[in-house]
């Protein structure tokens, strides 16, 4: 329990927690507009990581349909990240069209939307496996060009490492959060989005094209999902097509912890879970995957509306 360990854990927690926050915001945006959880978000996260990998590296492993294929050109990593995220946004729109819109038009039970989005997730994940196999993909270590892998400080005689990827994780997440905050709080489009979230019927009477804004929300949500997938993939490697499932579930813990539908809540929840995982004592590290879900239970017991959620209303 020395100071260097605390500092190292704080750094690790903040960088991974900020990615959790960006990822969880994708859930929050859709939830605040439709009141349902998009279970395909974890699949879009996975897709984003694979797309960026394809664009930046251009070659695949030995399994799957695309095994011998290599792309004619590859992009530098920042461009690949951006294009991968935009394509993930389009995938998010496809999820809305396939899994949510047909059900909304029929006025179906909201529980069904949950299952249909799980169905789409199943399709995406298995399609990835079919195309590129179930093997582990790691980004090459030279994707950041000449930047060093890590900078090591000495604190009280003990080393504290700041990995380059941690800085990139944190910086990219902060840029996304700031951009999103600006869009929702300061622009006309953001205002219309808030109106749609408040009451879709009234918004449509006031001339807001609700379906277009729902589609736009799914685009942003997919973009956030794909971006965070890439960041996690660069940081820890892509452990196969199912690697998004556990992050997808962790993202649910983040939004419940922060308060369902609350944007600041998702950010706070992400950081709390990231820090909670990082500050787990080393001898309990095998329980790391349970931290998020234990926190979820704890919050349901003591403050079910989440850290920043409003009072749970009882609508008739």
């Amino acid at each position: 329990m020395d100071f260097a360990w605390l500092l190292q854990s704080l750094l690790n927690g903040l960088s991974i927690g900020s990615v959790y926050a960006v990822f969880a915001l994708g859930y929050t945006l859709v939830f605040s507009i439709l009141g349902i959880i998009n279970f395909a978000h974890g699949a879009v996260f996975t897709l984003g990581a694979y797309l960026t990998y394809a664009l930046a590296v251009g070659r695949f492993g030995i399994n799957g349909l695309l095994s011998d294929l290599s792309l004619p050109l590859t992009l530098p990593f920042p461009a690949a990240l951006l294009v991968g995220a935009l394509l993930s946004g389009l995938a998010g729109m496809a999820v809305e069209r396939l899994a949510f819109k047909p059900l909304r038009r029929r006025g179906a039970d909201p529980l069904l939307a949950l299952v249909s989005s799980l169905g789409v997730a199943l399709i995406v994940v298995n399609l990835i496996q079919y195309l590129v196999g179930a093997e582990i993909y790691s980004f090459p270590s030279d994707i950041f060009g000449d930047l060093p892998m890590a900078v090591i400080f000495s604190v009280g005689g003990k080393p504290v490492a700041v990995r380059t990827i941690q800085i990139i994780l944190f910086a990219a997440s902060m840029v996304m959060l700031a951009g999103l905050g600006w869009f929702i709080g300061r622009t006309r489009g953001g205002k219309a989005l808030r109106a749609t979230a408040e009451n879709a019927d009234t918004a449509s009477l006031l001339g807001i094209s609700v379906n277009r804004f729902i589609l736009g929300t799914f685009f942003i949500s997919g973009l956030l999902g794909g971006l965070s997938g890439t960041l996690i993939g660069v940081s820890f490697g892509i452990a196969g097509p199912y690697f998004g499932v556990s992050y997808g579930l962790k993202g649910l813990a983040v939004i419940v912890l922060g308060g369902l539908g609350s944007i600041p809540g998702a950010v706070l929840g992400g950081l709390v879970i990231g820090l909670g995982e990082a500050f787990l004592p080393p001898d309990m590290s095998s329980y790391k995957e349970a931290v998020a879900f234990v926190l979820l239970f704890a919050i349901l017991l003591v403050r079910p509306q989440g850290l920043l959620g409003g009072r749970l209303e009882q609508k008739v």
Partner: peptide, 25 residues
């Protein structure tokens, strides 16, 4: 009990968490 005092999607989320915790445990 803690999840079912609430309405809506909370039970589904709490039970997903339960499955994950059981798995790690």
């Amino acid at each position: 009990y803690p999840a079912l005092r609430l309405r809506g999607i909370y039970l589904a989320l709490a039970t997903i968490a339960f499955v994950q915790v059981v798995n790690v445990a």
